[in-house]
Design a protein around this nucleic acid. Structure first.
Lengths: 338, 338
DNA sequence: GCTGGCACTCCACCGGATCGAGTGCCAAAC
DNA sequence: GTTTGGCACTCGATCCGGTGGAGTGCCAGC
């Protein structure tokens, strides 16, 4: 176990490096922090920290920079979550309250998060499977063709066209609509398959095929295809990456466009509380020099989706975590109200 | 007017510069193009082209690069639109046909366009005002609260919550739904305000306020707030900008995030045919070193929205224009089918 | 265990020299 | 009048060699 002072030295190194973007040396450390010991002592501590793998030198006779392992220790043990100032909180609330629909909420959230953290923001749309059904509407807008509209408690609306295998009368349609809604409204979407399983049986033989088709569309298309959508913003902040960013920015932009990768990344964020993935912990190669701070949000107790930011490993972790947490809370509130 | 050969020289300069990203000199030109004259002659021609403002030298004794004016002439007079190969066409069609809903169509289109042109792709969602109404649904999911769902012929679905000023019965609701639909279905959204103007008058006094609220929501919220949405993709291609891109990429990313700016940019693209805006023609400062190639697309004859790409002024105009035009056509077809 | 001193290392920066691509101009040839 | 070859010139890119300074590791002394 590292001594108290050595942890303090690590904290100081992380803070200074995050601020200056430059390797930090022993002398500079003693000048900018009240460590109470001389540079020589710090040098010894730094040698230990380097042996343990918490810091590294870019080259001999340069200052030290934190390693991924160093940041990890910093986040786990040394840093708290910095709460936002109350003007900031008020600004968040005001900004989010102006939203008119779900798209708008998500759009505003992304912009807000990007602005607040000055990094790249990623917001996942409320997941269908974890939302509850508010209403299912069936419309017959063209002969032998139905339109299925699904509305969730998070305000999400999905729509699908269905080609009927056989003509389907207005009466049967109303019947199906009523029965479908009586079974699924208020239930979690994940439970819907179970709840509608036997529905075709209660219809006449002639209509059964159509009912099955409708249900199949509901389950397959809606759930599987549109399960995961997300919005990204603040990519311009990538240009603040550092002096060597031309090399780094490319793979990051590419990774950000692969929504599948991002969703997996967010998904790995454990359910309770905030998750911070640092550098190589991210698995995806293009994000090896970035950290991801993510947290779940939802209208009730349960998280219906994730949001977070992607930034250089050299980021202000306490501030970023504070902003992410605060935004998630307010978005949850907004969703609960609508 | 420039002589035939001088135009040929300009064309050669543009082509070479687009290929190599480096200022092109007189000797290199004669080697790579069959111009039939000596470098000295080319030098004279280049001097004239420079006087006229079509090309410029980054510094004395360097090769020439085209100016915005030079590109303009190239696009207007010297370059055609390069049609895609038939494998490419087939790939486009296959890729777009897999789409399940409008979001998916737009998402696929963006990815396709970015991949095809290796530039940043921008696709505007089909505009509401230029679409026609397929159906309006009114649901009463909570007391004193209505949900309005709007479906257009382009597959777009919008939804709004409405707080009723007074209780509104099921009968009145069905009545309103029926009357509303009989008036607006099949009509262009732009005409809706006129068509529903007198609708409140035909209701009882007690319901009139609610009907007015519903109509107001329909018109104000839906039309104004969600009129213009767009999707962007392929930003990673910005890193191919050139060696000096760290300076250029920042303002471009910022401009891309300002959807309002982009929409204005696309909007300026004249209705008929393709529009190419080169460099400073773009008004927006951040895009001073980029060109925008845009074109309208739609399910029928009329364009319901625009799509296009943003790339460096030094781009392959014929190829880009070909790809943009082709994608727009296929998207139009897909929308018409759904 | 802490501190001051000291020699050492290595990067960043600067200025000068060189190289070469490309130009502009001119006189001669077509 | 246009085209051409020749030639001097310009100017950025590249490659040193030297210097300065920040930072280190080590050691002897407190």
């Amino acid at each position: 176990m590292l001594s108290e002072r050595r942890l303090e030295v690590l904290r100081a190194i992380v803070q200074d490096y995050v601020g200056t973007e430059e390797p930090v040396g022993s002398k500079a450390l003693t000048e900018r922090h009240r460590l109470g010991v001389s540079p020589a002592t710090i040098r010894n501590d730094m040698a230990v920290l380097e042996d343990e793998g918490y810091i590294a030198q870019p080259h001999t006779s340069a200052g030290r920079i934190p390693t991924d392992k160093g940041y990890r220790l910093f986040v786990d043990k040394l840093a708290g979550v910095k709460p936002l100032s109350s003007p900031e909180r008020r600004a968040i609330q005001n900004f989010l309250e102006g939203a008119v629909d779900l798209d708008d909420v998500v759009g505003r959230t992304v912009r807000l998060l990007a602005q607040l953290t000055r990094q790249v923001a990623v917001v996942q749309y409320p997941s269908l499977t974890r939302s509850t059904v508010r209403h299912v509407e069936l419309l017959s807008l063209a002969p032998a063709r139905l339109t299925l509209v699904l509305i969730t408690d998070t305000g999400r609306v999905e729509q699908r066209m269905i080609d009927c295998p056989a003509p389907f009368g207005e009466v049967a349609l109303a019947d199906l609509r009523a029965r479908l809604n009586s079974r699924v409204v208020g239930r979690r979407f994940a439970d819907v398959p179970r709840l509608v399983q036997d529905l075709p049986d209660s219809f006449d033989a002639e209509d059964r095929a159509t009912v099955s088709t409708v249900l199949a569309t509901l389950l397959e298309n809606l759930v599987e295809e549109t399960e995961e959508r997300l919005l990204i913003g603040g990519t311009a902040n990538l240009t603040r990456f550092g002096h060597d960013f031309p090399l780094m920015i490319r793979p990051v932009l590419e990774a950000l466009e692969e929504h599948v990768v991002l969703l997996k990344l967010l998904g790995e964020a454990g359910q309770p509380g905030m998750t911070v993935r640092i550098g190589h912990e991210n698995a995806h190669e293009g994000l090896a020099s970035t950290s991801v701070v993510a947290v779940g949000y939802g209208s009730g107790d349960e998280a219906v989706a994730k949001l977070g930011v992607v930034g250089p490993t050299r980021m202000d972790y306490p501030g970023t975590m504070g902003a992410v947490r605060a935004v998630a809370r307010y978005v949850g509130q907004i969703l609960a109200e609508s």
